[in-house]
């Protein structure tokens, strides 16, 4: 079946102690490994592979790479050929280049972001197990997020010079990695500029999203919660922990997600969101948002887009 889901994301943090505390106590992940370089690996309680988040100490914030898990090891060879045939150079990193991870296909998206695809990662099980499990474990901390759900990458766009890395990434992801489009934003006087796209491989509205900006970067990484009430509780936990909230609980028009945005201690934006929105399927018609309804698409209740939401990212 090819790519199944987002597998992990590796991000840079400027204070590793503060970062680990944030992702453990506010989000509710658990540390599963720390390597010799001081990189910290964490997972959510409902995930069964060894880790979904890598925090790397650095003098800046932002993305190192995002990795997707494919079903079969042989997929890596076919994807490598297809990516190379498309004109993008690749390399295969040997197993254990990242601890607990099998051999990994590595390349840069047209936008410049590093993407990886792997088929194997050490299985450790969820916190409730597989035999007669409880619906949730007793030692949930903070927001108790279920799993890393998706990421949104900011891609360079400049209509004057004709640069549109959103469109280039989208074409590549759909043609080469077999992603499907759930929704898109189309702007410009000719209504022909693809300014944002939401793409999926799983059955949820997005496993990755691309939005146009002045430079490439990481807009946010998002974790899944069960319900609107869990989103409210997550906001309470952020209040308790004095976390900088970017957007208070609301709903997206795009994906229909119930959401809250906030920042980790290095300024990387996080989202916890609930609601699967709808069943994403390869034959589902694509939803399109026009420039006039851009604000409504992003924040459905107010219809107002705050500048910081699109200008601020790492």
């Amino acid at each position: 079946m090819g790519i199944m889901r987002i597998g992990h994301i590796s991000i840079k943090v400027m204070d590793i102690v503060a970062a680990v505390k944030h992702y453990e106590q506010v989000l509710g992940l658990k540390t599963t490994h720390t390597d010799a370089q001081g990189n910290v690996y964490l997972k959510c309680w409902d995930e069964w592979d060894k880790f979904s988040l890598i925090l790397t100490p650095c003098d800046q914030a932002g993305l190192n790479h995002v990795a997707y898990k494919t079903e079969h090891d042989a997929d890596l060879d076919s994807f490598q050929k297809r990516v190379e045939d498309y004109g993008i150079s690749t390399q295969i990193l040997p197993a254990e280049s990242l601890p607990f991870v099998g051999r990994t296909l590595c390349f840069n998206l047209p936008s410049g972001h590093e993407m990886r695809i792997y088929a194997k990662k050490e299985y450790v099980g969820t916190d409730v197990g597989t035999m007669n499990p409880d619906p949730w474990p007793d030692d949930i901390r903070g927001s108790g997020v279920h799993w890393l759900d998706h990421c949104l990458l900011m891609c360079e766009m400049n209509p004057e010079t004709g640069v549109n890395k959103v469109a280039e990434n989208t074409k590549f992801m759909m043609e080469v990695l077999d992603f499907y489009m759930a929704e898109q934003i189309i702007v410009g006087p000719e209504k022909n500029i693809q300014a944002a796209t939401w793409l999926f491989r799983s059955t949820t509205p997005h496993d990755i999203a691309f939005v146009a900006g002045p430079r490439q970067g990481l807009h946010h990484l998002a974790f899944y919660l069960d319900s609107w009430h869990d989103v409210l509780k997550a906001a309470d936990i952020m209040g308790k922990n004095k976390v900088r909230i970017d957007v208070a609980p609301t709903r997206h028009g795009i994906t229909r997600g119930e959401t809250i945005y906030f920042f980790d201690p290095s300024g990387n934006r996080n989202e916890t969101f609930a609601g699967l929105g709808y069943l994403a399927q390869p034959d589902r018609p694509v939803t399109t948002w026009s420039e006039e309804f851009l604000g409504r698409g992003i924040f459905y209740h107010t219809g107002e887009l705050n500048a910081a939401f699109t200008e601020v990212y790492t």
């Binding site: 400027m14 204070d15 003098d59 800046q60 914030a61 932002g62 900088r244 970017d246 920042f263 980790d264 201690p265 290095s266 300024g267 990387n268 934006r269 910081a308 200008e311 601020v312 990212y313 790492t314």
Partner: peptide
């Protein structure tokens, strides 16, 4: 982001003194 990562609040100190209270990207 209020946390030194996004860079949007860049300023130049023209006079007076400040102290650093956290990491800047």
């Amino acid at each position: 982001c209020l946390n030194g990562g996004c860079g949007i609040c860049k300023v130049a100190i023209r006079h007076g003194h400040v102290k650093k209270i956290g990491a800047m990207s």
